[in-house]
Design a binder for these strands. Structure first.
Lengths: 148, 148
DNA sequence: CCCATTTAGTTAAGGACTTAACTTTCCATG
DNA sequence: CATGGAAAGTTAAGTCCTTAACTAAATGGG
C-alpha cells in the first residue's frame, strides 16, 4: 500500500454503499427517536409495546428478546418501567414457574393509539423522498442484501 | 382505529422499507464491529483513526466531532486511550490556546494498514450479495433518501 | 425417581455515548 | 483596552445496552 491517505479516501463501491446505508439509516432513526423524546416517551419501550401488540397483547419476555433482537436482560430492564407506569402487566405462567406472561394493558394500548400513528407519519414523510416504485426497488435490494 | 393489532401488523410500504433499512444496516454494522472485537480493537476508535488519516493525519478534536457526527465530549473520551496506546499524539495549537492538534503516529498508521483492508474486505463480501449495477441503484436510492 | 443439565428471568458490573457544567482562551464591541 | 460572550476542550453524571453471574424451576437419561 503506497499511500494510506489515498487508501482511506478512495472508497470502492461496496464500502461507499455500506457507509451510505449507515448514514441514511441513522438519519431516519433519529427522526423516530426524536419524536418519542419530544413526547417524553422512550423509543425502546414503545417498540416493546408494539411487539406485544403484534402478538395479540400477550407474550413471554424471552420471545420479546428473540423478536426484537436484544438480550433477555435488556427486556427485563425495559419491562420494569413499563409495568410501573401501568402499560403492561406481568403474571406468573400457570404451567411453568420459570416463565412470566406479559400482557399489554388498556393504558398501554391507548398509548400506542395516541402516538404510534403520528410517529409512523413522521417516518413516512421522510420516506416520501422516494416514489412508490423506488420504495419497492429499495425494499427488494435491501431484502436481497440481508439474505446475503 | 378499529383493531390495534391489525394496525401494528399491516405496515404500509414506507414503514416496511424503514424497518428493512434498520435491520439490514444493523446486520452489516455487526459484521464490521465483530471484526474489530475479534482483533481486540475498538470500532469507534478505529473510525477516529480513519478520519484523522482522511485529513492527512492532522486534525482538531472539534473537527472530528463534526465529521463523525458525535459530541465533542465523546471525541475527548475516545482520544484518551488512543493517545495512551500511542496511536495518536496531542499537541497544543501554536496559535490558539483553546485548540489542540491531533496527529496520527506511525503506530496508528501501521494499525490501519494492518487491519483496515481486512475489515473492508469483510464488509465487501456481505455487499457482494448485490451485483454491481444493483449497488449503483442502491447508492442512488439512499442518496436521494438522505437528501430528503 | 434422582440429579445433572437446560431454560427463564433478574441483577450487577461495565462500556459507549449523551447532556450539562465547568475552565480556559479568544474575540469583538463598547 | 476591558469585558461580555463565544468557542474548544475536559469532566461528571446519567442512560441504554451488553456480558456475566446468579436463582429458581423444569426436564430427561441413567
Amino acid at each position: 500500500m503506497k499511500n494510506l491517505q489515498q487508501y482511506v479516501l478512495d472508497l470502492p463501491l461496496h464500502t461507499l454503499v455500506f457507509f451510505s446505508l449507515v448514514e441514511t439509516t441513522a438519519k431516519l432513526v433519529e427522526v423516530s427517536e426524536k419524536y418519542w423524546q419530544s413526547k417524553g416517551l422512550n423509543g425502546a419501550r414503545m417498540r416493546l409495546l408494539v411487539e406485544i401488540m403484534k402478538e395479540g397483547g400477550i407474550i413471554l419476555p424471552s420471545m420479546l428478546a428473540a423478536k426484537i433482537g436484544v438480550t433477555k436482560s435488556n427486556i427485563s430492564l425495559l419491562l420494569i418501567p413499563l409495568e410501573s407506569d401501568g402499560y403492561i402487566r406481568r403474571e406468573p405462567h400457570p404451567k411453568d414457574g420459570r416463565k412470566s406472561v406479559i400482557s399489554i394493558t388498556n393504558e398501554g394500548q391507548s398509548l400506542l393509539l395516541q402516538y404510534l400513528p403520528e410517529n409512523r407519519q413522521g417516518i413516512a414523510e421522510k420516506m416520501q423522498a422516494l416514489e412508490e416504485h423506488e420504495l419497492h426497488q429499495l425494499l427488494a435490494l435491501l431484502t436481497k442484501l440481508k439474505r446475503g
